[in-house]
């Protein structure tokens, strides 16, 4: 997809989102303590401004090639790379899901191991050892030193 088409897509998505947001803001009910502007006043104004900005991006995509934007912008990578990104997203979601059940140290061990493998580390002793050292080290820093209580795991309680 060329940059102008991307801008068009961004413009359309922005307008759709901004209109939905403005409608959602209009449905906010004020309490008896509300001021003249109300809880929905400023969000509605922001929603309308965003719709206007979305229209601006859409319109400008037709009049010039595109704005330069963030220098880090790149095209979507190939199917293999996308699969790896999706797998990493799945791993992060899985970490969040398993953390309360199996506890912090096993969960972070799995995250270290699996994300290392996904990133291309060879499956061997070095990776296993780094995860084995990293997990308890992080637990010591956060749970013991900084007194942030990490879950022990409902399965073991």
């Amino acid at each position: 997809m060329n940059p102008a088409a991307r801008d068009r897509l961004l413009g359309v998505l922005t307008v759709v989102f901004a209109v939905s947001y403005t409608l959602a803001a209009r449905s906010i009910e004020d309490s008896l303590l509300a001021d003249a502007v109300g809880a929905s006043g400023v969000p509605q104004g922001v929603g309308i401004a965003m719709a206007a900005a979305g229209l601006g991006v859409f319109a400008s995509s037709w009049t010039r090639v595109t704005a330069t934007g963030d220098g880090a912008a790149e095209d979507l990578p190939g199917a293999g790379a996308i699969a790896r990104t999706v797998a990493l997203i799945g791993l992060l979601v899985a970490y969040a899901a398993m953390l309360p059940w199996i506890g912090y140290v096993p969960a972070i061990f799995v995250l270290l191991l699996a994300s290392g493998l996904l990133a291309g580390a060879p499956a061997g002793l070095a990776l296993f050892a780094s995860a084995g050292v990293g997990a308890p080290t992080l637990w010591l820093i956060f749970d013991r030193l900084l007194q942030v209580r990490m879950p022990l795991g409902r399965l073991w309680e």
Binding site: L10, I28, V42, P43, A53, V57
Partner: peptide, 30 residues
């Protein structure tokens, strides 16, 4: 970074995220 319209959209999105939670005057959830 040279894209003012997109910068505005991003800033407005930031404001929208900031509005999530209790209203600062009446305490209504938004």
């Amino acid at each position: 970074s040279g894209s003012l319209m997109k910068g505005c959209i991003a800033a407005l999105l930031g404001l929208m995220i900031a509005f999530i939670g209790s209203d600062p005057v009446s305490g209504v959830s938004r």
